[in-house]
């Protein structure tokens, strides 16, 4: 039982990080109807912004984290929107898919060439002090990951539902034409979405890198996990992405322990297939109907 609890808690901590990236998928989908296939690389890059700030500018870790989030917002938020998405408006969806795939390769190889091909140690925001509860060992860092991810998600939820700007963003996501008629600055709301996505990716990067180690190829695994989490939870609901992330984190851990490590990556994909077959809108997603 203690093993099971250990696996669940560890899975929740990892799943919370997946959830942060999965939220980014859902936000971008809702506002721009685009899927960012470079989302994994968006989770990989901020750690290298932080490492670069520490290595080349001698910044302390706390400052490097702030620099990483700011650079993420600048490069992966504003830069991504202005350079990749805006020029492709009105183009077929496939153009965005191919562009984001190309962006993923570009970011990955750039980090490899500019920084290093080798994995880099990454400091933890909280120390690895062990706490034991009934035989279950939980590190302070794991609790920290859960707390930080939960706080970020709650703040985001509050922002989207309780603030004027948040409600305008939701209106833009639900029906941009009507939102525009009502006087909502659509372009600004879309930009905010990209900025939030970039900031969430930055947070996820800083939380996951102490576990995964910072490496140029991390995005491959993270992007897939977040994508599956978003679909399983519900691509058109932020709360769906949260649930999806947590489910994938826990299922992944339990599959590795009780099925087989060799098939651990297959189990979330099987879950994905089952969700698509029997509940295509995802666990918490809402059905969308479109007139043809």
């Amino acid at each position: 039982m203690t093993d099971f609890l250990q696996l669940v808690i560890s899975g929740l901590a990892t799943g919370a990080i997946y959830a942060l990236a999965a939220i980014g998928f859902t936000l971008l989908w809702q506002t721009t109807q685009t899927i960012n296939f470079a989302q994994g690389e968006f989770m990989m890059l901020p750690a290298f912004f932080a490492l670069a700030a520490m290595r080349w500018a001698g910044a302390p870790f706390w400052l490097a984290c702030i620099v990483a989030i700011l650079c993420s917002v600048l490069v992966l938020g504003i830069g991504y929107k202005k350079i990749i998405i805006d020029p492709l408006r009105g183009q077929p969806g496939l153009a965005v898919v191919i562009s984001t795939l190309a962006l993923a390769i570009f970011l990955k190889d750039s980090v490899k060439d500019i920084y290093s091909a080798e994995a880099q140690p990454f400091p933890t925001i909280l120390p690895d002090t062990m706490l034991s509860f009934g035989g279950v060992n939980i590190s302070l860092a794991q609790i920290g990951v859960l707390v930080v991810a939960t706080v970020v998600i709650l703040v985001l939820n509050w922002f989207l539902t309780q603030t004027r700007t948040g409600r305008q963003m939701q209106a833009t996501a639900q029906n941009p034409t009507v939102a525009k008629i009502l006087g909502v600055d659509i372009d600004r709301m879309v930009l905010y979405t990209f900025l939030i996505n970039a900031a969430l990716a930055g947070m996820a990067s800083l939380l996951i890198s102490p576990i995964y180690l910072a490496k140029f190829s991390n995005g491959e695994v993270l992007g897939l996990a977040a994508f599956v989490a978003a679909i399983v939870g519900g691509f058109n609901q932020v709360r769906g992405a949260i649930v999806g992330g947590l489910v994938i984190g826990v299922v992944d851990n339990l599959a590795a322990a009780y099925v087989s490590t060799a098939y651990r990556q297959a189990v979330p994909l099987v879950l994905l297939v089952l969700v698509i077959l029997f509940r295509p809108q995802g666990i918490l997603g809402r059905k969308e109907e479109r007139t043809v």
């Binding site: 093993d3 250990q6 576990i211 490590t261 651990r264």
Partner: peptide, 30 residues
């Protein structure tokens, strides 16, 4: 374990459950 594996939490849980006198780890560096 899998090449390129990032999360070893389940593996360590299983290793601990085995309660062996020693653990022989044969993985690549990262």
């Amino acid at each position: 374990t899998e090449p390129g594996q990032a999360d070893f939490a389940p593996d360590v849980v299983k290793v601990k459950a085995a309660n062996a006198d020693a653990i022989f780890v044969y993985l690549t560096e990262e």
